[in-house]
Write a protein that binds this DNA or RNA. Structure first.
Lengths: 64, 64
DNA sequence: ACAAAATGTTACATATATATTTCATTATGT
DNA sequence: ACATAATGAAATATATATGTAACATTTTGT
């Protein structure tokens, strides 16, 4: 399954590298988070959400 | 300023130690997160939110 | 088909979240 | 005032997020 974060990034027309630069992370880190193989820090999640004009819930919360 | 997380925990009548046990963390970790001196992992944030019947946004998102 | 960009992937190094332990301080109830 | 629970705080140890670098694979445009 493709993550909501990846959808939001593509929707914004950003590449992994571009997003990474905006949030002071690396391309690899962004890629791993998108694949769900990472457990990112809250601060990084917030930076990503703001860069993509989303909230934490919209990107990282699963409606149970 | 007292964190939203601390308010939600007290509202639920939980002690730091009780919440910590529910989310598989330690009392100290919970305390530091409440004080804002920590940058917790997304998984821990999600566990805390669920334990307190809140969402990520409600606990960790600052409405700008 | 080709070139270039974007993404995947792995190995290793580093920074930091978290655990563990111990003791001090503050709150709560009786 | 006393006892107990709850929280604060510091030291060290460990696990893991993140960075860096290099190369492979896929995608995109021409």
């Amino acid at each position: 399954m493709v993550s909501k974060m990846k959808l939001a990034r593509i929707e914004k027309g950003l590449t992994q590298a571009q997003l990474a630069k905006q949030v002071n992370a690396t391309r690899q880190t962004v890629g791993l988070i998108e694949k769900g193989e990472y457990n990112p820090s809250l601060n990084l999640c917030i930076a990503i959400a703001k860069a993509l004009n989303k909230t934490l819930d919209e990107l990282f919360w699963e409606g149970d």
